[in-house]
């Protein structure tokens, strides 16, 4: 019997990520990792792309990981775990090691996933390795100091898309990576957020038990890059969900399903105004960018509703 998704039950097992890691106070990434790993009863083996989560959890000679963990490089968390998984399958098949229902999971940030690691991820899921790839998406290269990635929202100030006198922040919309992964036709793809912890945990369980490659895109607040208080992480993450900037859904064997529908779809502004990275958008001359972003959020939301049979 799987452990019930009740915090008191889940807390009975020691954390798989120890304290003493050096992620910033209020980081969303370790919340995601803790919640997801708490939801999995089976043994796990992890790979981690270069990025905040990787560097902050394993500053030699310390490691915060209580489970097997490997970091190789930035763009290859998926190909690295594919090698680990292939080794496991080969050696189990040959009777060299026992079969133990190991769950293989790769963690990467949006830089390591949307951008530099996209090819390795696409290849690894196409090959059908049994693993879950988790993108903790904080919408920029936070580890190197907040540079824009293809996950950065339109209008956001980053250090390589600064809000300048002529160009007011990032000029492009976020790449819809979750849809790209769904287009691979793999058994399970989902978008989630830690503010909806039960939804995140349920999806995690489905993902690691889907019998093939799975992908989850999980929104991860970075208070340094997003510019908000360290205690506002959960609230602002939930605003991204309630404004439908970050809808929660899953694609199971090709069937799209909305897993959360906000009672009232809030204007995207409600999410933007809580973050310093969008401050410049509230100047009158940049107002049109908020409108553009709202239009795009609406367009994608409508499309998602249609795909999910809700429109």
């Amino acid at each position: 019997m799987a452990t019930k998704l009740l915090p008191k039950e889940l807390a009975k097992r020691p954390d798989r990520l120890s304290p003493g890691h050096r992620l910033c106070a209020g980081c969303g990434a370790s919340i995601i990792v803790r919640q997801m790993l708490a939801a999995i009863d089976e043994p796990v083996v992890l790979s981690n792309a270069t990025g905040c989560l990787e560097v902050a959890t394993t500053i030699y000679p310390y490691t915060a990981w209580r489970v097997p963990w490997i970091h190789n490089a930035f763009e290859n968390a998926a190909s690295t775990i594919s090698g680990v998984e292939a080794a496991y399958r080969s050696m189990v098949r040959q009777g060299k090691i026992p079969e133990q229902d190991v769950k293989f999971i790769a963690f990467g940030g949006d830089g390591g996933t949307y951008d530099i690691g996209l090819q390795a991820l696409s290849g690894a899921v196409e090959r059908g390795h049994q693993f879950l790839y988790v993108c903790y998406d904080n919408g920029a290269y936070m580890n190197t100091g907040i540079q824009r990635s293809s996950a950065t929202p339109l209008g956001a100030h980053t250090t390589t898309s600064p809000a300048g006198k002529v160009i007011p922040g990032k000029q492009q919309f976020r790449k819809d990576l979750t849809a790209i992964m769904a287009a691979h036709g793999i058994p399970y793809v989902a978008q989630a957020a830690p503010s909806q912890w039960r939804d995140l945990m349920k999806k995690t369980r489905k993902a690691v038990n889907c019998g093939g490659p799975a992908f989850m895109n999980v929104l991860s607040s970075c208070n340094r890059g997003w510019r908000h208080g360290t205690d506002e992480t959960v609230e602002i993450t939930q605003l991204a969900v309630d404004t439908c900037y970050w809808p929660l859904y899953e694609v199971e064997e090709g069937v799209w399903r909305l897993t959360y529908k906000p009672r009232e779809k809030l204007p995207v502004e409600e999410w933007l105004k809580r973050q310093g990275r969008f401050r410049h958008l509230f100047r009158p001359e940049n107002r049109h960018l908020i409108d553009r972003l709202q239009e795009e959020v609406d367009r994608r939301w409508e499309r998602l509703l249609r795909l999910c049979g809700e429109a």
Partner: peptide, 16 residues
């Protein structure tokens, strides 16, 4: 690193 979870030895409480 052979000691799993030895980051507990590193005090991050001083950041508070």
């Amino acid at each position: 690193i052979l000691e799993a979870g030895n980051a507990t030895e590193y005090p991050t409480g001083t950041w508070r």
